[in-house]
Design a protein around this nucleic acid. Structure first.
Lengths: 245, 245
DNA sequence: TCAAAAGTGTTAATGATACACCCATGT
DNA sequence: ACATGGGTGTATCATTAACACTTTTGA
């Protein structure tokens, strides 16, 4: 297909005074996408891993990834990978960084683009008929991973933390209906800080990005909390350029 | 070289229960690096461009880039590209984002990693024996570029603006010795804001990241200003986690 | 009635903003 | 002496930080 285009340009190549001095499609280079899929439940941030079977990393956890297909862009590949592995559609995805260190992959020159993804871990059911099952690990407990995946995880976590302070991404980790205490816990866990309850609530409500559902929790053995949901239209009205929390 | 590794793995492939389900090095995919080289002089932010000669973009400005070489990682490629084109070493470089839209390049599947680069435009001399000369264009005046380069420029500018507020990257655009008025102008131009002179100076000096050179400008037809330089060791002592300006 | 988490206001300290005049130099 | 940009302080306002008790529910 496009190789014809290359061929037809070949004669002109010496005249083409451009940033592509030559097309070298034969570097034998592959491109992959690795997804750091974050989930949150039970007051802990988790990352989805699989068991790596490739020497010399046998048995170590690795991120979920795949090679880029021929007619696919990176965002689509990331979406496909997450859907295949989790069965969930419309998860939040963000490109983070591209990793290209020589020797990063034992089978050859594989350059990988890292994405982070956020999902409501409770939506996930182990339905996936994939050969290797997903293992959710607490992010704080992960120390070593296959390939350069620990470095990728670290970068993605930093990016998530940075985004959480300025954009309404955290809601992707919570159920649709949540309490103010839940979102405060989320921020405390992900950002590794302690927050004052009264100040946090005042600030968050002042942003005017939540919808008060006028419902409360049920079946809790203490005073039930009000439930809220994230209201994107309010957010867009009030914070076209992000906020600070 | 590594193709041997691939070959030797081929028989095991069905057993390898890993994220690489198959190695497809024959997608005929090329990887390039495009650099948004920013320069600042004369109260304007400039970007280095070259004239594109590739149909259908003949005559349009394009960014400076090249294909990734076989034994080179992305950071090295970006460094090489900037050095080749500007003759300058040790310029500041930051990876921004990878662009992979299908059809973004007329010669085939070329995925490009965008970097932005900051340099002191006055250090640059048109010594480069490169075939196509660099053209410095005011960023605010650039509207259309070859390929998806305008989109890349836009993303890189946004990233630069974001970094300027939190990290000491702006100094890479200024001469080693600068006045407080110069750095204020820089911030005003890049961030497109107006700043109050007294407040800006107080805040900047309070960060305690500058060295007062106890020198002044010469040959100016008005009261000469004090000269300062950026002091990285002070910065690292006081702002391990960035600042806000 | 007890345990558990929800919900609520005030004060003090800090940081941000607005603003106008004198100073040092070259011509 | 004049034109040019350099350099400086204070008062007001807005934001952040610290802090403790009452309420509602289930067991």
């Amino acid at each position: 297909m496009y190789m014809q285009a290359v061929k037809s340009k070949q004669s002109e190549r010496e005249n083409i005074n451009t940033w592509l001095t030559q097309i070298e499609f034969d570097h034998r280079l592959a491109m992959s996408v690795d997804c750091v899929i974050f989930g949150y439940t039970n007051k802990d941030l988790y990352v989805a891993t699989i068991k790596c079977d490739m020497p010399p990393y046998e048995g170590m956890p690795s991120l979920v990834g795949d090679l880029l297909h021929a007619n696919e862009d990176l965002d689509s590949a990331a979406k496909r990978i997450v859907e295949e592995r989790t069965g969930l559609k419309n998860v939040y995805l963000e490109q983070v960084k591209t990793f290209s260190k020589l020797g990063r992959h034992p089978l050859g020159r594989v350059i990988t683009v890292a994405y982070y993804s956020l999902l409501k871990i409770d939506d996930y059911n182990q339905i996936t008929s994939h050969e290797s099952p997903l293992v959710w690990k607490k992010v704080s407990g992960v120390k070593k991973m296959a390939f350069d995946h620990f470095e990728i995880l670290t970068e993605c976590l930093a990016q998530l933390q940075s985004h959480m302070k300025e954009q309404p991404v955290g809601f992707n980790l919570l159920p649709k209906k949540f309490t103010l205490a839940q979102i405060q816990e989320l921020y405390e866990v992900v950002l590794k800080v302690e927050l004052d309850k009264r100040n946090f609530r005042r600030k968050l409500l002042a942003l005017d990005i939540l919808k008060d559902l006028e419902e409360t929790e049920v079946y809790v053995k203490h005073r039930p909390a009000r439930l809220y949901s994230f209201d994107r239209s309010k957010y867009e009205k009030n914070h076209a350029n992000g906020f600070f929390l």
